[in-house]
């Protein structure tokens, strides 16, 4: 007997399955990441996953809550993956652990656990790391074929866990700043956009390699929309607004403002549009609210990228807009059946 009250039947789709779909949708992006940058990212993903599950279990135990049903919901895993994808793969192991632990314990469970956190936990974890350990957060891997030397997987593991590089190899030889970071620095040095983009780290659309990872996330995102796991509102409003704003600046001054396509395929734009901003817990619930939320986040992302102190603005834009969610929801309540304009 399903219960004492109707409805007695339910559609067999669970939170766990929804989150599993989201995790699956990340796989094309991750696969391309591995293809272009090597398997080090898999280490961070694993580390983050283990930490997330461990910390979640601990937090549930402390609160005397049931551990198994929550651990099985896959939400902690998703937080872990999103954070791991935002951290340089060669970052020391403890950076991943600290960031994930903070995300799960402080920004998720201390706010009441699943469904109650006002901020996206992965982005809180990212913000904590980039503010506390800015140097470690800039050691991004150079894509295959670009660096003078490349590390074997074993050597990468050695560096991640023990901070030891093979003799004669310096960190600078295997890492680089992100394409967005480089762009920012070069523009500060009075570089011209066209000259900067001729640097070898840039590919056809944006960063060499990273543009393909972004394309992978786009593919996963389209899958999520097709599967009706997420609605189109947030990704479309986010990418559309980012494109429009970047396009406007690019039209006005192409020498100092890169193309809108560059913005879409750089940094965390694609990941954010489909996987981070769409976190249902921390985004608005009304369709109109979602459009406002995502468009504002895109505007903030662009402003931070173009005029702010950080190379990418996705995380901060997300967190700033997370604050506004209750307000946006309250002011965008749709009209109900029979009470729309022009009806009695």
């Amino acid at each position: 007997m399903s219960g004492f009250f109707s409805p007695f039947i339910t559609k067999p789709v669970s939170v766990s399955q929804i989150m599993l779909h989201v995790l699956l949708a990340l796989i094309p992006g991750i696969a391309l990441y591995v293809w272009f940058f090597g398997p080090a990212i898999l280490v961070s993903l694993t580390l983050a996953s283990i930490t997330a599950l461990g910390v979640e279990a601990l937090m549930l135990k402390i609160q005397n809550k049931q551990i198994a049903p929550t651990l099985k919901d896959n939400t902690a895993l998703l937080t872990a993956w999103l954070l791991a994808l935002s951290i340089p793969p060669l970052a020391p192991w403890w950076l991943v652990v600290v960031g994930t632990a903070f995300a799960i314990s402080i920004s998720k469970h201390l706010y009441g656990g699943l469904g109650n956190n006002p901020f996206n936990p992965a982005m809180i974890g990212y913000a904590v790391l980039i503010i506390s350990f800015p140097v470690h957060m800039t050691h991004w891997l150079t894509p295959h074929g670009l660096g003078d030397v490349s590390l074997s997987f074993l050597e990468q593991l050695n560096y991640i866990f023990q901070g030891v590089l093979p003799d004669g190899i310096k960190l600078d030889a295997i890492t680089m700043a992100t394409p967005l970071d480089t762009l920012k620095t070069q523009l500060h040095l009075n570089g011209h956009v066209q000259e900067i983009l001729d640097m070898p780290i840039y590919g056809r659309l944006a960063g060499q390699g990273s543009e393909w990872v972004a394309a992978g996330f786009l593919l996963g995102g389209v899958y999520l929309i097709a599967q009706r796991i997420i609605s189109w509102h947030i990704p479309l409003a986010y990418l559309g607004t980012l494109f429009a704003v970047a396009g406007l600046f690019h039209l006005i001054d192409p020498a100092h403002y890169v193309t809108p396509v560059f913005h879409l395929f750089s940094g965390a734009a694609m990941l954010g549009a489909f996987f981070i901003l769409t976190d249902p817990v921390t985004s608005p619930t009304t369709p109109r609210g979602r459009l406002i939320f995502a468009a504002s986040a895109a505007l903030l992302t662009y402003l931070i990228r173009a005029f702010g102190g950080f190379p990418d603005g996705m995380a901060f834009a997300t967190l700033l807009m997370n604050i506004c969610v209750p307000l946006i929801d309250a002011y965008t309540q749709p009209k109900v059946f029979g009470k729309k304009k022009g009806q009695s």
Partner: peptide, 15 residues
């Protein structure tokens, strides 16, 4: 015909 429902989880605002 009507299996027992899984225990309720928190609302994730999925709408």
């Amino acid at each position: 015909l009507f299996p027992a429902p899984a225990p309720a989880l928190p609302c994730i605002r999925c709408t």
